[in-house]
């Protein structure tokens, strides 16, 4: 792995006020940084906004994906730290959606000085039910998700690979394709689904030493309310805000409330 630069590797975009505090927005499993399209422009008025695609998602460098490196969330946390280092980002307010909330937690444990604050948007440290803990899913449910991924990626390699690999002979394919925000190589999608939904990071929460805001939604089938409360209880000194939103993507379904929650916490000294 060379230092080919994170801007290509992770398709990093920096917008907003150059002299503003840095807000880094990390997308979750499923789509890419387009998830922040309703939120980033508003935040850019007051903050320097950094968005990126995890390796294997969106327009990241798919050739940089390695099964071994990304078999644990640490590989992704390592990428976050690398972006911070290469762009020389100080005092980052890291906003992680879904699985990226836990990626942020891991990054902040490793290099606490790099982060001013953490915003965990609909986080879950463990999706699988356990004794005395309700994550909302069983292992069989996750197997079903993998099946859903498979049946929706049928024919992907043939149809999408030339586009994503940037086939120079077929420039007409270069345009943005329908559903492309949420597509990637099926093998990568499976691996990311596994690491997202089958890892247990509950024990890491107590190690967070950065001011943290937990944000959940009134109704979210992926991260039920007790999970948000669990995360709040485990991270020392953290606060929980529940948005009047439904679904697992409040940055799309309730962008104003999401912006408000992020901005007020990020700006607050």
């Amino acid at each position: 792995m060379g230092r080919s630069g994170v801007s290509t590797r992770n398709h990093v975009k920096v917008t907003g006020r150059e002299d503003g505090p840095t807000v880094m927005l990390a997308h979750g499993f499923g789509c890419d940084q387009n998830m922040w399209r309703l939120v980033a422009p508003a935040l850019a008025r007051d903050f320097r906004v950094v968005t990126f695609d995890h390796v294997g998602s969106g327009r990241s460098d798919l050739s940089a994906w390695e099964a071994e490196r990304y078999a644990a969330l640490d590989g992704y946390a390592d990428d976050v730290l690398r972006i911070c280092r290469e762009l020389d980002l100080p005092e980052v307010v890291f906003v992680g959606h879904s699985v990226s909330a836990m990626i942020g937690v891991l990054a902040a444990i490793r290099e606490p000085d790099r982060f001013a604050k953490l915003v965990l948007l609909v986080p879950s440290p463990c999706y699988i039910d356990d004794e005395g803990y309700r994550g909302g899913f069983s292992r069989a449910d996750i197997e079903e998700l993998l099946e859903s991924l498979d049946s929706n990626y049928l024919g992907w390699s043939a149809a999408m690979a030339p586009v994503i690999m940037g086939n120079p002979d077929r420039p007409e394919l270069g345009e943005e394709l329908t559903n492309s925000f949420c597509r990637t190589d099926p093998e990568i999608a499976r691996a990311f689904a596994r690491v997202t939904f089958l890892t247990d990071h509950r024990a890491d929460l107590a190690k967070v030493g950065v001011p943290t805001l937990v944000v959940d939604c009134l109704q979210d089938v992926i991260a039920p309310p007790e999970v948000g409360a669990f995360v709040r209880d485990q991270i020392p000194g953290s606060r929980l805000v529940t948005l009047p939103a439904t679904g697992h993507c409040p940055q799309l379904s309730a962008p104003e409330a999401t912006i408000e929650a992020i901005a007020s916490f990020a700006a607050h000294r």
């Binding site: 197997e143 329908t178 089938v221 799309l252």
Partner: peptide, 25 residues
């Protein structure tokens, strides 16, 4: 349950971003 995960992580966001989504299994 698996379909719900797929719906929440792929279907719903795409529908919001594109206004339409088709042929999802």
């Amino acid at each position: 349950a698996g379909g719900r995960l797929y719906h929440e992580t792929h279907f719903a966001p795409l529908l919001t971003m594109q206004g339409a989504i088709g042929g999802v299994a």
